[in-house]
Computed example of a mutant assay.
Amino acid sequence: MTYKTLTAASALALMLGATTASADTWRYAFEEAMEEVQGKFAQKFKAEIEANSDHEVQLFPFGTLGESDSILEQTQSGILQFVDQSPGFTGASIPEAQVFFVPYLLPQDTATLATFFKESKAINEMFPPLYAEQGLELLTMFPEGEVMMTTKEPITGPADLDEVKFRVMTNPLLVESYKAFGATPTPLPWGEVYGALQTGIIQGQENPGFYIESTKMYEVTDHITRTGHNNFTTAVMANKDFFDGLSAEDQELVENAIATAFDYIIDYQDGLTEASLAKVKEAKPEITITTLTEEQRAPFKETAASVEATYLEIGGDQAEAILTQLKEDLAAAQGM
Score class of each variant (00 low, 15 high):
F62T: 12
D241L: 11
A305T: 04
Q74M: 15
Y3Q: 15
T110Y: 12
F30G: 05
E282I: 06
E308L: 05
T5N: 14
S93N: 13
E73R: 15
E153G: 11
N231S: 13
E96T: 10
E213I: 09
T291G: 08
M217R: 10
P285F: 02
D270W: 02
E133V: 04
G335E: 12
T20W: 13
K44V: 08
T199Y: 08
Q205W: 12
Q251S: 00
S77D: 06
T151A: 15
M1P: 13
K165V: 13
E153K: 15
S77L: 08
Y104T: 09
L253W: 06
Q76Y: 10
I123K: 02
I212L: 06
V307S: 00
G271D: 03
G245F: 12
E313F: 08
D244F: 00
Q81R: 14
M15W: 11
D109I: 02
L174D: 11
V102P: 02
A332P: 00
F166C: 03
L59A: 04
I71A: 10
A309W: 01
F242W: 09
E36Q: 13
L105Y: 02
S247C: 10
P158R: 10
D84M: 08
A248G: 10
S93M: 14
G135F: 06
Q58P: 05
G66N: 06
T150Q: 04
K44H: 13
P158N: 10
E219S: 07
Y311E: 01
A309E: 06
Y194Q: 06
A305S: 08
T324A: 13
Q269K: 09
K4N: 15
K118L: 07
E56L: 10
G335T: 05
I49E: 00
T112Y: 00
S53E: 04
V37Q: 12
T225N: 04
E295C: 07
T115V: 00
